[in-house]
Design a binder for these strands. Structure first.
Lengths: 206, 206
DNA sequence: CTGTGTGAATCTATTCACAGCC
DNA sequence: GGCTGTGAATAGATTCACACAG
């Protein structure tokens, strides 16, 4: 497939969210202009983003809300569910696991791991925290799709290496560390401090 | 000032983190190539990023680690501390407030607000959760620099409108909602579900 | 007439490549 | 000789503008 930019993918995610809201209000058809206004972009951008994947609209009319939503779900790979594990049973992990948006979109957390004996065995949102030593054996028995890494920075690379060796191909990283992985593994890092720093930069440069 | 791209700012944040690590190891000088390797970019990119703000290196030698770190702190506005309030005393808010990276970088959470009477008055990391009704009065008495919005999606725009009216110029938004603000207010949105969807897209398109 | 789909034009970001200084 | 700083070249993303389908 033609190379799709990260920004296009993020916008498709947004469009999907809006389409679901429009669908909930019973709206059956929508124009690129309306979608653009909602998403803070331009109608040409919306049409271009979609055009990478096909032509889903009707000229003079716009897009069918349910059809376009289904199509975007297809594109984003949201037709199926994903098995997710969480490594690190800290505060951020706890917040994530409760986050309804995950389950709603088909991301099912199937296990939580930690290293701390005080946490191992405790219940977390219906799951028992497991000793991270079992990681490899568990993944060999029941492969997963995505791992969320929420360990301290100094443990993150080690955990990631183990996940990669166990065959994990997608990692969402919340540890404030730069991770190295083979080319066939995709890592997305979210760094809270960095987000705040873009704000302090904006405040400092006005 | 010349318009600086978001990606440049994010990379500067990263460079700063690496510089601090190098400094902790006692390294006093560093080349753009070394910084680039660490940050997964190119030496030309590092030099170009820095060149928007001045020339801080010595030809043939590289950059002084502490000097460059100080300079980047300057650029990012990290010389000062920032007063931050949190609106929404939920799980994510709880995780954020404990996050050591915030305080370390000078972001001090001075108050937490919520609407839920069950939460109001409870202690959170040394702070008492206040009724969000006091928001305007509190901010008039003690202005803040940054607000972090961690409310449910349907409450977010209302909270943001109130923050903006109270004079807040920078908002970090964790609510899965698209926010509208005047041009002089900067909003940075972090959407966890969207991050996961970029991963499912990557998995679906290999 | 309305609103899509898309090549062409423009604007922005990254990479190249080299002169200049340490 | 090594490495920065930076214009020039390239690559990439966004916007324009219009032919065309409903």
């Amino acid at each position: 497939m033609r190379k799709i930019s990260e920004s296009t993918v993020r916008r498709l995610s947004l469009y999907l969210r809006f389409l679901e809201q429009f669908a909930a209000q019973g709206q059956t058809t929508i124009s690129s202009a309306e979608l653009a206004r909602r998403g803070g972009t331009t109608s040409a951008q919306v049409r271009k983003d979609l055009s990478f994947f096909g032509s889903f609209g009707k000229r003079g009319l716009g897009y069918s809300v349910p059809e376009l939503a289904a199509k975007i779900r297809d594109i984003l790979g949201l037709r199926r569910t994903y098995r997710v594990v969480l490594v690190g049973a800290g505060r951020i992990g706890g917040a994530l696991i409760q986050y309804p948006g995950f389950r709603q979109r088909g991301f099912h957390v199937s296990a939580i791991y930690d290293r701390d004996p005080k946490k191992i065995g405790s219940r977390w949102n219906g799951l028992v925290v497991r000793d991270v030593r079992h990681l490899e054996a568990d993944l060999a028995r029941e492969p997963i799709d995505i791992a969320i890494v929420v360990t301290p920075a100094d443990a993150a690379q080690d955990v990631v290496d183990r996940l990669v060796r166990a065959g994990v191909k997608a990692i969402l990283n919340f540890a404030p560390a730069q991770l190295t992985v083979p080319a066939d593994v995709v890592v997305k890092s979210v760094n809270m401090a960095l987000e705040l720093e873009t704000l302090s930069f904006a405040l400092a440069n006005r």
